[in-house]
Design a protein around this nucleic acid. Structure first.
Lengths: 339, 339
DNA sequence: ATGCCGAACTGAACCGGATAAGCTGAGAAA
DNA sequence: TTTCTCAGCTTATCCGGTTCAGTTCGGCAT
């Protein structure tokens, strides 16, 4: 099946290639009648412009890039990324932009991918996930002058546009909620320590615990896998002054923690309250359903995509704070049982 | 930062554009010495070929497409797709192919995406997921002559290349295992009924149950969400002749089923045995850990990608059976308690 | 010495659009 | 009637590669 080109449309319409191009792009230079005729013919013969030719002459790829840097085993289990992607996608496909995805092993490989994409002009811009402290990707992107929106922050994003959610506020709300229930010994199972948002949450946790006089507050680090989350929970619950509430940095670890607690003969929420960050459907699957910090991740992705398209169009992307996660109390939190 | 073009390389090497092109593509037409010199210069000035220009003149996009047609809420939760994507990616990036992803609402939108990709020459081929019975995408792709590999089958894939896993065998093994434990009343919570592999599993389930004389075998349909899976489980467990074992078509529903059973005061595996299809890390998070049918999904994706690249290269893709899922017994299955 | 061959390379056409510059003819202004 | 203007189009060039048809030249056989 031969693919129609702009020349085919031009021939059938009895005009030149240029006229067709103007008509398709909504540019002045053709009469409204001619434009309609050309559009009708284009639709009729199923013409779409070659993305390659367009990219070559218009110097725009019509695609944005997303490189995911997580080991395959955590990538799949985290509902976060798919939710983010579906939101990004919704925004992009509405403007007929494509999404180019790449899974990379480490930040250096990611920088290499950006450099390649830039050289190949394969994408017009990129979304940067999992902001780290002292992130080498930021200066690399600045140097390339590749339009980018960093999903993460605030802070540490250099001159690049960025979008974040106020994790500090969400964490503070959560601790205050647990404290109001009467919890005094609160632990937190954190995600990867070199991620910027882990750092932000850790600082906020320390601050609010100090403010509320929760001296037994403890943070342990993990890697977002259920396995590690379970192990961390077992350690916490075996300690002499075991916490009465644990906040997990993602829902997978929270579910693992719940299992460990139940396995150790503790009841949730009687002996232990659990709060999960990221309120995916998983939180409602387990028994008791988990109290969780949720927000609209697809909307977050859509927002980031819109912001990136603005940057690509030459507008300043700015630094934008998105919706703050809100706590949805469910069955996994309650006042601590008096011992 | 100005991007170097092939002309820059040619100028610095003191040769023509053509020579550089031959050198970069490993074509004959330049001496080995010149080739090395050109490659060195290309590396030195950080040259990569514009994907657009390459696509335009070589008539190859250097990208393959993947359209995912699932509602956003199930897409994210299913670890399957991310695992598949990471496998596909590994294979593609090794050959510096890009992956273009699109999330679509329904099969018709998916066909429209294929048609657009084809018209735009945006991808060289596509991977087709979630094969349905009487799948309209198949004739559409055949008509477009867009290289494709269907992930699913066997059967119903028309003339297209396809890759599948023997779900019938896996299901048969599972039922035999449960029957060997002594279960006589086995139920199955199936996924979306119009998916081809659901149909295959349903037929296999009926066949093996009849062969083993399990007259109480029952299949109920669901939509892969935990919510529906839980509801289906509640119905099953409330019935007069409640099953002693349930096979779930994915792990999310299995986990939901486990919660429902526990909530209803049933012990697992004492009162109810549970088997999950798709052995993601989630199965090991819950307590008891779930007996599951697992296989290497990233390898499956990599296999599909390799097959598609072969089809793109003009070789016959064929119909290939991949690894069969194998049962990993864990804590959620045991002989039924005698009542 | 001449002719011939093939390796090594050049030049130009081409892919399919976007776009600047040039052309044309109808209507308005002089 | 002539000139000017400008909407509405055409023509030509460019984007950055690939590729085909030549061209050059060194070496070898005659």
């Amino acid at each position: 099946m031969k693919r129609p080109t702009i020349a085919d449309v031009a021939q059938r319409a009895g005009v030149s290639k240029g006229a067709v191009s103007y008509a398709l792009n909504g540019q002045p230079g053709v009469s409204e009648a001619t434009r309609q005729r050309i559009l009708a013919i284009a639709t009729e013969i199923g013409f779409s412009r070659s993305s390659a030719a367009r990219a070559l002459s218009a110097a725009t790829a019509g695609a944005i890039g997303l490189a995911l840097c997580r080991p395959a085993r955590t990538l799949g289990v985290e509902p976060f990324f798919m939710a983010l992607i579906s939101g990004v996608e919704a925004e992009l496909s509405a403007r007929s932009y494509a999404l180019t995805l790449q899974v990379v092993a480490d930040p250096d490989a990611e920088i290499a991918v950006y450099r390649r994409w830039w050289g190949e002009r394969r994408v017009d811009g990129v979304l940067v996930c999992d902001l780290r402290t002292d992130d080498r990707r930021i200066p690399a992107l600045e140097q390339l002058q590749l339009p980018a929106v960093v999903i993460g922050g605030p802070g540490g994003t250099g001159e690049l546009a960025s979008l974040w959610s106020d994790d500090a506020a969400a964490l503070t709300e959560t601790v205050e909620y647990l404290a109001a229930l009467g919890h005094r010994r609160i632990a937190r199972v954190a995600g990867l320590p070199d991620l910027r948002h882990t750092e932000i949450r850790t600082d906020a946790f320390a601050a609010v615990c100090q403010r509320l006089g929760l001296v037994d507050a403890v943070t342990v680090w993990s890697d977002y896998t259920g396995e590690e989350g379970g192990r961390a929970t077992r350690r916490l619950l075996s300690s002499a002054s075991r916490p009465t509430a644990v906040i997990y940095d993602n829902d997978v670890m929270a579910i693992a923690g719940l299992s460990v607690a139940q396995e150790m003969g503790l009841t949730v929420p009687g002996d232990l309250s659990i709060v999960a960050w990221d309120d995916s459907p998983l939180c409602r699957l387990v028994h008791p359903p988990l109290t969780a910090l949720g927000r609209d991740i697809p909307a977050y992705g859509a927002h980031a995509a819109r912001q990136l398209l603005a940057v690509v169009a030459g507008q300043p992307g700015g630094r934008v704070q998105d919706e703050t996660a809100h706590l949805t109390p469910r069955g996994s939190t309650a006042p601590p049982r008096v011992r």
